[in-house]
Design a binder for these strands. Structure first.
Length: 586
RNA sequence: UGAGGCGUAGCCAAGCGGUAAGGCAGCGGCCUUUGGAGCCGCCAUUCCCAGGUUCGAAUCCUGGCGCCUCAGCCA
């Protein structure tokens, strides 16, 4: 445990209204450790300023959420701020559609950049001036080598590169050429501005990296103002410095770029000295999390858009019914470190269920209906029974549900020949209808042709109203049901993992991850019977369909006549597990 | 045979010379008008391997091994 003054977590306790910070261990990750040390040494005047720097070339996914939670979370804990900065230095791939979705997703997760929304493109002029400064320092030059030649000159991992023949141009010539590059005097790709560092460096990033390229491409913000665009390695550290970022947190693949990051900061006299820290990106089992692949899934119609509920994008997860708190709790629970890791997706599902359990209204819905008639129940009688909305939260109150002679129950809740341990309905067996009565099955009606069970006849015990008797009778099984004449029809969409294997890259020679796509990741059920209250469902409100799963109204396919529900995540299924292991034994 | 990282349970992850936290998964049990939730218990004599230093090593030293990243005018 660190001393109290070393831990801002303790000097700035979270208020009551803050979501629970799910880190019972109280251990501090290596990034916060570094920040604590910097603070102790009095760096940055005791300030902590971070940034979340997405490139607007795709939708945000759960991996970005880890970074967002880290950057905004750290800012909050240390009483600092976190900027939202779009890293839009490559107009060929970027689009406003993406900046809009990114803003929506960050907000949805519950983070606030206030007025600090920035674009690297806002710094193009300043960045250009810095480049001239570098030229004047003799630290950058205009190079006429083609991309192919640059690659050849760069050398390899084990052999040093060789210097460009243009490396020794005079400062005046470089300045002149660079200005003319900006003025549009040279064709695309014909020249580049390069840093003059060390062609023999063991770190390839230091072998005279390109700073500016010529590209006549319309930028989504600066439009046609520029025909030269800065490279990430150059723009990023300087953008950080311009914003006064103290800790520039990024993923591991940029570790090799840190010497270059520091080089720019030390060559140019920036007023602030940002520090880059790298952590391991998130990987999830049964999931693919690279922009290249996600965009491929969308463009080749393997899924129905960026917000397909099977996608790991924040838009997809939101539509699927995930809550921001579940994602945030997940992100803080998995930790931050430097070892490449793959998180079991069961973790995500755990934190989802944990949150949904507290929030979801319990309702009854029958996915695969089986008609059930209570023979000894009066023909035209309808009762209004009380049902609690959420046993985890009595304040959620109760509602009335209609009950009568004809009901639907779930097909899989009846077995003519029950296996051992099955305590749902079977011939002669008494079970409880949730919130209603005890019933006993007396007769099965089958389709004479197919043998399929199409109707059940039962008797009920009038003394068990509400699902209780006073005689201490033990009724183990409880079934959900819906009144047949009152039930509404709904479409229900069941989702499972998009990929068949924990590691989508686990493929046969010559195949790629797409061969592991799960052909059954979406199952559409029609003719589902739901209780009437569900006709008031709104997207974004979580429901628990009792004994089954959490669901939410689909924001795209629902209509007033026919609601469509997405299965967010199943309930834990202990019986399913038992049955599975029984089957294994046989 | 270059450089930079990383190796602690099935999956994450603490640990910072004093005798292996916590979470997920799994497995038992209790409880239950959701086979849900909740509760209780179990789950690393050992930290990639081999030597060394030390009264004492996951932690320090030496030497191996394994994995990841880098040869875009992408980020």
């Amino acid at each position: 445990m660190k001393s109290p003054e070393a831990s801002p977590l303790q000097t700035h306790p979270q208020s009551e209204s803050d979501p629970p910070f799910n880190n019972p261990s109280q251990s501090v990750d290596f990034i916060r450790e570094i920040i604590n040390q910097d603070l102790k040494e009095g760096k940055n005047n005791g300030k902590v300023i971070t940034r979340f720097p997405p490139e607007p070339n795709g939708y945000l996914h759960i991996g970005h959420a880890k970074s967002i939670c880290l950057n905004f979370g750290i800012a909050e804990e240390y009483n600092g701020v976190c900027n939202l900065r779009f890293d839009d230095t490559n107009p060929e791939k970027e689009d406003v559609e993406y900046v809009d979705s990114i803003m929506e997703d960050v907000k949805w997760l519950g983070f606030d950049w206030e007025d600090r929304i920035y674009f690297a493109s806002d710094y193009f002029e300043q960045l250009y001036l810095y480049a001239e400064e570098l030229i004047e320092l003799g630290k950058a030059y205009v190079c006429d080598l083609t991309p192919d030649e640059i690659r050849e000159y760069r050398g390899t991992l084990t052999e040093p590169g060789k210097e460009s023949p243009y490396r020794s141009r005079s400062i005046e010539e470089n300045l002149n050429l660079f200005r003319r590059m900006r003025a549009g005097e040279f064709p695309d790709g014909s020249k580049s501005l390069r840093a003059k560092i060390d062609m023999a460096s063991p770190n390839l990033n230091m072998r005279d990296p390109v700073l500016y390229r010529i590209r006549r491409v319309k930028h989504h913000r600066t439009e046609n103002k520029w025909c030269i665009y800065p490279m990430y390695d150059y723009a990023h550290p300087l953008s950080d410095a311009i914003e006064g970022i103290t800790h520039s947190i990024c993923t591991l693949e940029f570790e090799n770029h840190r010497p270059l990051y520091d080089w720019f900061i030390s060559q140019l006299n920036t007023k602030s000295i940002p520090r880059q820290i790298e952590f391991a990106r998130l990987n999830l089992t049964y999931t693919v999390l690279s922009k290249r692949r996600l965009i491929e899934l969308v463009q080749n119609k393997f899924v129905d858009g960026w917000d397909d509920p099977r996608m790991p994008t924040l838009a997809g997860l939101r539509r699927r019914g995930f809550t921001p708190l579940a994602i945030r709790n997940f992100c803080s629970a998995i930790g931050v470190a430097k070892s490449d890791s793959v998180i079991d997706i069961a973790n995500l599902e755990y934190f989802l269920r944990e949150d949904l359990n507290k929030k979801a209204v319990r309702v009854m819905a029958v996915l695969n209906p089986l008609k059930l008639v209570i023979d000894n129940y009066p023909e035209d009688k309808v009762e209004e029974l009380d049902a609690e909305n959420n046993p985890e939260n009595p304040a959620a109150g109760t509602r009335k549900i209609p009950f009568c002679k004809t009901l639907y129950i779930e097909k899989e809740d009846f077995r003519e020949d029950p296996p051992k341990g099955f305590f749902r309905l079977s011939p002669g067996k008494e079970v409880r209808l949730k919130h209603a009565y005890y019933i006993t099955c007396e007769k099965i009606v089958k389709d004479p042709k197919t043998g399929e069970i199409i109707e059940l006849h039962c008797k009920y015990d009038p003394n068990s109203r509400g699902g209780w008797t006073t005689d201490g009778r033990k009724v183990l099984g409880t079934l959900h049901w819906v009144s047949a004449p009152h039930a509404k029809e709904a479409e229900i969409r069941l989702y499972s993992h998009l990929f068949l294997k924990p590691d989508p890259d686990d493929v046969e020679e010559g195949q790629d991850y797409k061969s592991n796509l799960n052909p059954n990741s979406l199952t559409i059920l029609n003719g589902c019977k739901v209780e009437p209250s569900l006709m008031q469902a709104k997207p974004g409100i979580p429901y628990q369909f009792l004994r089954q799963a959490y669901f939410c109204l689909d924001s795209r396919h629902s209509s007033t006549e026919k609601p469509v529900f997405n299965r967010t995540v199943t309930l834990r299924d202990t019986w399913g597990k038992i049955e599975k292991s029984q089957r294994r034994k046989e």
